[in-house]
């Protein structure tokens, strides 16, 4: 299954608020694989995902293959005054995907004409995840995708993830729960914590 390499990360160092949090992060994500990021709060999972999504620059290291990514953040980027279908149709137009299949996969067909403002937290999350399906991108970078989802919805998500993997996609997921995916590989970030000795431009100014 692990044929082509989707994402190759070598010696990556990332910073939050101007301070290095992770360094020397290296891993390979192959097509059809899921890598689950583990580590306590504040270890740098979100920072790593944002760096891989291209939202912030890396301090050091190399990333190859990150062109074809869909990023799923804490915030779903929903517009409260647009309906479920309209929200999704916008992203479908941006990525050139199909709305219908995504609505079905995330069990949102019955809600499609409801305004996003009137959805429950879990329904909003499902709509946020449906956006990944319309994006058609091969690599998903997900930050706590299962927050506020009930057990049935988590199962829906895992099902959608399986389909994604089966079609050659791959995913990097930061989560604290057990997704029930035996094939998922764990990547513990605790080992990559940046040394406090990382030297910034101003450390030596008064030395």
């Amino acid at each position: 299954m692990a044929g082509s390499l989707a994402l190759v990360v070598e010696g990556l160092a990332v910073a939050r608020g101007g301070l290095a949090v992770l360094e020397g992060v290296s891993f390979v994500l192959a097509a059809g694989e899921v890598l689950v990021l583990r580590g306590p709060n504040g270890v740098g999972k979100t920072t790593l995902l944002r760096t891989l999504a291209g939202l912030q620059p890396a301090l050091a290291g190399q990333v190859r293959g990150a062109a074809d990514v869909a990023y799923g953040a804490h915030a779903d980027g929903l517009k409260a005054t647009l309906t479920v279908a309209e929200n999704l149709a916008f992203w479908a137009a941006v990525y050139g995907g199909q709305v219908r299949g995504a609505l079905e996969a995330m069990n949102l067909v019955a809600l499609q004409d409801r305004r996003a403002a009137d959805l429950s937290a879990g329904q909003k999350r499902r709509l946020g995840l449906a956006r990944l399906l319309v994006s058609g991108q091969m690599i998903w970078l997900l930050d706590e995708p299962t927050v506020s989802l009930d057990a049935a919805s988590v199962a829906l998500f895992v099902e959608a993830l399986r389909t994604h993997l089966a079609t050659g996609g791959s995913a990097l997921i930061a989560t604290h729960i057990d997704l029930g995916l035996p094939e998922a590989l764990d990547l513990d970030l605790t080992g990559f914590r940046a040394e406090l000795g990382f030297r910034g431009a101003f450390d030596e100014a008064l030395a």
């Binding site: 990514v69 779903d76 980027g77 517009k79 941006v94 956006r131």
Partner: peptide, 16 residues
């Protein structure tokens, strides 16, 4: 508004 609800992050990672 797009910044607050996260759309701007998503737009920044979209292929436009």
């Amino acid at each position: 508004l797009d910044f607050e609800d996260g759309s701007l992050d998503l737009l920044a990672t979209a292929p436009i």
